[in-house]
């Protein structure tokens, strides 16, 4: 695997060249908070940010997305027929994505790119995107990535890993997509003398800083129905106000709703992020609701991430340990605690 050295003085120029062929996204301040946003001409991603409040999932999977359009004007030949919308999937890159958020796209891919059905919007958008990661030299106190199948320098899901070393970025090229991006940026790759060693050392140092952990080794062997019936759900969900924050900040949550919006005689069918925290999510037309209490909804969220996903894909939990839901939950519900309750559950 090739590692090149990018002089920070050359950084901005390279991104400018890159912006000719790629639409660039990166962490930047938007109003009071940092988000992943489309960078304007000359705007640089702020790589000093530990991580954003919202994950970058919206770059590939927008919070609201048009699917189809239609006209209700009966004078038009195609009235009431849904038509596909031309969408743009030109090359784009997320500069400065954290390794956990990049790995999250791989977890979510199992849902959108399944053997039986392919979600064309998600897949085309994902394929058009190059992920330039940024290793975490100073992880947050509630990150638990190292025991959630990820890590501060984790490469899975990334095309390039950047490591900040004094006045340079070491760039580890992980995929061909990453190679193509570097070529387009045109940084001087002749200083190809850097080795993997400093990265390995920094990786170990960063991993050592993560002291928050979860245990997941027993989850697969637990009985689904026993966990479902466990007595701790009432306690876990007691303080929950069903605000949905956990599901909106999570990089691995993917649920959506489909709605039609009509203005005059024309309209669009669109999809919007939805959340299992809301009672309407499962509310039948008949009035019946299989998850009409918050305990049932909180249980669904944790069971999905820590049991159903584990059983369905046999590839770990549906969580990368980014710690956002822990940080932003207004009532301090902590997935690490719930995970340990589930993992150590005995009848």
């Amino acid at each position: 695997m090739k590692v090149i050295k990018i002089d920070k003085k050359e950084w901005a120029k390279g991104l400018e060249r890159l912006s000719k062929t790629y639409q660039l996204f990166g962490p930047a301040k938007h109003e009071a908070f940092f988000v992943f946003k489309a960078l304007e001409d000359g705007e640089l991603p702020d790589l000093d940010v530990q991580n954003t409040r919202l994950s970058p999932r919206s770059v590939i999977y927008p919070q609201s997305e048009k699917m189809f359009e239609y006209t209700l004007d009966e004078d038009q030949e195609d009235h009431h027929i849904l038509k596909e919308i031309d969408k743009e999937y030109s090359s784009r890159a997320i500069i400065g994505i954290r390794p956990c958020d990049a790995k999250a796209f791989l977890l979510v891919k199992r849902n959108f790119d399944a053997p039986e059905y392919k979600d064309p919007y998600w897949i085309k958008s994902y394929e058009a995107t190059t992920l330039v990661g940024h290793g975490c030299n100073a992880p947050c106190s509630c990150c638990f990535c190292t025991t959630a199948g990820c890590g501060p320098f984790h490469e899975e899901g990334l095309d390039i890993l950047l490591v900040d070393v004094d006045d340079t970025y070491l760039a580890k090229i992980i995929t061909e997509k990453g190679d193509r991006l570097l070529a387009a940026a045109g940084w001087d790759t002749k200083t190809d003398t850097a080795t993997n060693d400093p990265i390995e050392n920094m990786k170990e140092a960063a991993e050592a800083k993560i002291t928050s952990m979860v245990s997941t080794d027993q989850l697969k062997d637990k009985s689904t129905t026993d966990l479902f019936e466990a007595s701790f759900w009432e306690d876990v969900s007691f303080a929950c106000i069903n605000c949905g924050t956990c599901t909106y900040v999570c990089p691995t949550c993917w649920c959506f709703d489909i709605q039609d919006e009509t203005h005059g005689l024309s309209g669009i069918r669109m999809r919007n992020w939805d959340s299992c925290m809301y009672p309407l999510f499962t509310f039948h037309g008949s009035g019946h609701n299989p998850r009409d209490t918050k305990t049932q909804r909180v249980r669904q969220r944790f069971m999905h991430k820590l049991k159903y996903y584990v059983d369905k894909y046999d590839n770990g939990i549906q969580c990368v340990g980014c710690g956002r839901c822990v940080r932003f939950c207004p009532v301090n519900i902590d997935i690490r605690r719930v995970c340990d309750l589930m993992n150590s559950f005995e009848l």
Binding site: A114, E116, T224, F228, I258, D274, T282, H284, K312
Partner: peptide, 22 residues
């Protein structure tokens, strides 16, 4: 079950790990 996508992607109609729609 209440459904939207009907193809096991939108996430609402699960019973455990099974989607009623798919």
């Amino acid at each position: 079950m209440r459904m939207k996508c009907g193809i096991g992607i939108c996430g609402r109609c699960n019973i455990g790990k099974e989607f009623v729609c798919k």
